[in-house]
Design a protein around this nucleic acid. Structure first.
Length: 793
DNA sequence: ATTCGCAAAGTTTTT
DNA sequence: CTTTGCGAAT
């Protein structure tokens, strides 16, 4: 009995959708319609008579959960299905059984900033010698331990080394401090629930029974804690369906364990495995490039990628002299495509490995008046003013939340300073009470002067006053915070424009609160609201709304798609990142990251790298990424924009590669993946591969050939003969004989070079970078007075 | 108790 | 080149 939802599916998709009982592994390549399959399968389960409340679907992001919910609703089949993120699911379980781990049900969920603050305090107050180790390092170590399900009681047993010793001291103190605040951090949500499920078999059994069908999205990103939770719920009813793609695992550094998905078939020997290999997103050429790259990874499950889409344009690989040219050229190409009407701004995305690389791009986009948006890690709920307001609410909900109290006790300034807080803190520690409780008793604390005691008492009275409305709608509570604390007045009266922005953010918070109130009518939703803001981030609503070019890291790009994608700085030390170079597994993760970036592209993909890059204040010679050597370069469009650069003789010496001829002759063939490579090694390797390629492929552009060998011709050519050495490619596609990089003349603007071309026949448009005044203009070739100064040889 | 200045460090960030 | 954190100064 197959419903309509089985009809327009491929056999593989259909197999996944109609699977009901027993473990299921869906290996879903990029753009393979995974979400569609998952939601249809849920619809199918419901149609089989399974109740919605027996099904739980777990995702990593709210965005994914929302999307799934939306799709289910359009199929009219979300009834009772528990659809949420791992963390939210765990928060709910934990609220019901908080006392088992020494918490009260109104515990606060600390975000990263708050947990770091707590950790800081622990470190400061401990006498553990940790000058060598940074708080961040300790935080990472603790987080990692939690992800691996190592509790503070167990940590010391397996600790080793100096860091291990320090963590053994700090981790328990940190945990006790959280407990004292009746708070948990993100990792605790998972760790504590995993622990509860392990230690309380009756609860485990009842949840196993209750959630008979479990679905996990992005299974390749699960960590050990998540793995244990999911397994614990799938003992009696092992109807565990996981979807994921080992090739898209890019969060190993956050504790994700690739083994979970790689070993799924071992964990569940009778698992049904479905491979979704048909790609509906990208052109054949883009997919081929992606496939060639990822084939170099060892830790993966065999999977081929197919598409019925057209071949599409060749994938671009372009070398620029420096990042300014890189950025300008990208911006110019985008501007030209927009000007010609071929594309809209929202069709484009530019990806980079590190946020620091966005600056040059931003400048280029703003210079050319191209609308763009940057997706950054900083979120709305991370802003100081928002957190200030919310901290009041947190304190109402959980008076033991010391971090919240410390945040608001002197904001706006009330003259309660460090020394007073120190005294309160001492008193609290001595009597085993919270800071707020100590503040309440400040009149009886001998060390606190009358004067200050009055100030503190005023603060306590303020919180008590706001607390009277704790059961009210959220908007009202926040309103009371703003008016009673004079926080709003402070911002209104200030004439700094930052404060204007802060005020606007607070208005936005109020609007969001009103929306929450509408969705949760009635009173007493404070705890729910706080959980929502703790576990929801708002980077989720970037897209669609606006017609802009998107700039973001490749991590942020996961799950998205764009018609045209640029990836900049495909260079050694950036992609792969230098911090990953010593670890084979990390190197593979970097490759996966690039794979993710490439597979976001639907129609056009351009990879870029430069000759020199200014990074962290210094200019250094950029080495092409080793990943570039793994691409099918013979099937790509290689462009070398170096030749058209006016060469600064002073600069030229630095063009020589670090590897000398003698070094090269030392005979280094291919390095096995994952060996430790120095920069020099890599350069040598690059050189050799390039030479090898050059020998077998006469059309290989010069920029992939060792500069030592080609330097003579290179220098001679440059400036004088600015024609492509790979012009066969350009000729074929260009009836007008204009090619990128060509030098042209304009009666008004003088000489310039072609940096972008788009459109065809009469609508063909060229973007010219003029040498005078660094001007950039676009022209319709059919009507412009442009003449070519140099023609391709 | 804020503010200024210098030193140091510098991936990625679903919750 | 940035940002960020900490210490000293007003």
């Amino acid at each position: 009995m197959s419903g309509s939802y089985l009809q327009d599916l491929t056999p593989a998709q259909s197999a996944a959708v109609s699977h009901v009982d027993g473990p299921l592994l869906v290996l879903a390549g990029p753009g393979s319609g995974k979400t569609r399959v998952v939601t249809r399968r849920i619809a199918h389960l419901l149609q089989q008579g399974i109740f919605g409340d027996e099904i739980v679907a777990l995702t990593f992001t709210n965005k994914a959960a929302d999307e799934m919910r939306q799709r289910l609703e359009t199929q009219g089949a979300s009834q009772g299905v528990w659809l949420s993120t791992f963390h939210r699911f765990c928060a709910h379980v934990l609220r019901e059984h908080a006392s088992w781990v020494g918490l009260e049900p109104n515990f606060t969920i600390y975000d990263t900033e708050n947990s770091h603050k707590t950790l800081r305090r622990v470190i400061d107050e401990s006498d553990v010698p940790c000058r060598q180790t940074s708080p961040e390092q300790l935080a990472r170590a603790i987080s990692q331990a939690k992800n691996d399900l190592i509790t503070y009681q167990e940590y010391a047993d397996q600790a080793h080394g100096v860091l291990g010793k320090i963590v053994s001291e700090i981790y328990p103190s940190y945990q006790q401090r959280l407990l004292a605040c009746n708070a948990v951090d993100f990792d605790d949500l998972l760790l504590l629930v995993a622990g509860i499920l392990r230690d309380h078999s009756e609860l485990r059994e009842s949840l196993d029974e209750r959630y008979r069908y479990i679905l996990v999205d992005e299974y390749q990103d699960t960590n050990r804690a998540q793995y244990c939770i999911v397994r614990a719920l799938s003992v009696k009813h092992p109807n565990l369906a996981v979807t994921g793609d080992p090739d898209q695992s890019i969060y190993g550094w956050r504790g994700a364990s690739l083994d979970n998905i790689l070993d799924f078939e071992k964990d569940f020997p009778n698992a049904h495995v479905v491979r979704l290999e048909m790609n509906y997103r990208s052109t054949k050429r883009i997919l081929h490039v992606a496939d060639s790259l990822i084939a170099n990874n060892k830790r993966r499950l065999e999977k081929s990628l197919y598409t019925d889409n057209k071949d599409g344009a060749r994938v671009d690989l372009t070398l620029y002299p420096n990042q300014t040219d890189e950025a300008d050229s990208i911006a110019a190409r985008i501007a030209a495509d927009i000007a010609s009407g071929a594309r809209r701004p929202r069709d484009f995305a530019v990806f980079f490995r590190v946020n620091a690389l966005s600056r040059t791009l931003e400048k280029a986009f703003s210079d050319q008046a191209i609308p763009y948006q940057i997706i950054r890690g900083v979120e709305f709920y991370q802003r100081a003013e928002i957190k200030d307001v919310l901290a009041h609410l947190q304190l109402l909900n959980n008076p033991r939340d010391n971090v919240a109290l410390l945040r608001v006790i002197n904001r706006p300034p009330r003259g309660i300073g460090k020394t007073t807080i120190q005294k309160l803190s001492e008193h609290a520690n001595q009597h085993g009470i919270s800071l707020f409780e100590a503040a309440r008793r400040c009149g009886t604390i001998a060390s606190i002067s009358k004067r200050l005691a009055v100030k503190v008492a005023k603060f306590v009275a303020l919180i008590d006053l706001i607390a009277e409305s704790a059961e009210a709608p959220i908007e009202e509570i926040i309103g009371n915070v703003l008016s009673h604390s004079a926080y709003r007045d402070l911002l209104v009266e200030s004439d700094a424009k930052e404060d204007e922005e802060r005020l606007a953010n607070i208005e936005e918070l109020l609007t969001a609160a009103r929306q929450f109130d509408e969705q949760n009518p009635g009173s007493g939703h404070l705890e729910e609201y706080l959980e929502q803001v703790a576990l929801v981030n708002d980077t989720d609503d970037w897209e669609d709304e606006t017609d802009r070019v998107t700039l973001m890291t490749m991590h942020a790009a996961k799950g998205l798609e764009f018609p045209v994608v640029f990836i900049v700085a495909v260079e050694h030390g950036i992609l792969p990142h230098e911090r990953s170079r010593n670890d084979p597994d990390q190197l593979e993760e970097e490759r996966r990251l690039m794979f993710v970036g490439i597979t976001r592209a639907m129609e056009e993909l351009a990879l870029c790298y430069v000759h020199h890059r200014d990074y962290r204040g210094i200019r250094r010679r950029a080495v092409p990424s080793a990943f570039l050597m793994e691409l099918p370069r013979d099937k790509m469009r290689l462009t070398n924009q170096m030749e058209y650069q006016q060469i600064d003789p002073a600069d030229e010496s630095s063009w020589r590669p670090a590897a000398s001829k003698s070094a090269r002759s030392s005979g280094l063939s291919t390095l096995p993946t994952g060996t430790v490579m120095t920069a020099a090694d890599l350069l040598r390797r690059h050189t050799e591969i390039s030479l090898e390629a050059a020998n077998t492929e006469p059309a290989m552009p010069e920029h992939l050939v060792d500069k030592d060998v080609s330097e003579e011709t290179h220098t001679k050519d440059s400036g004088k003969q600015p024609c492509s050495n790979d012009d066969s490619l350009n000729h074929a596609t260009d009836p007008n004989a204009f090619v990128i990089g060509m030098i042209v003349s304009h009666p008004e603007h003088g000489l310039g070079k072609v940096i972008a071309l788009s459109g065809s026949t009469t609508r063909r448009i060229a973007t010219i970078q003029f040498f005078q005044g660094r001007k950039q203009r676009t022209f319709h070739l059919a009507t412009s007075p442009l003449t070519s100064v140099s023609s391709p040889s």
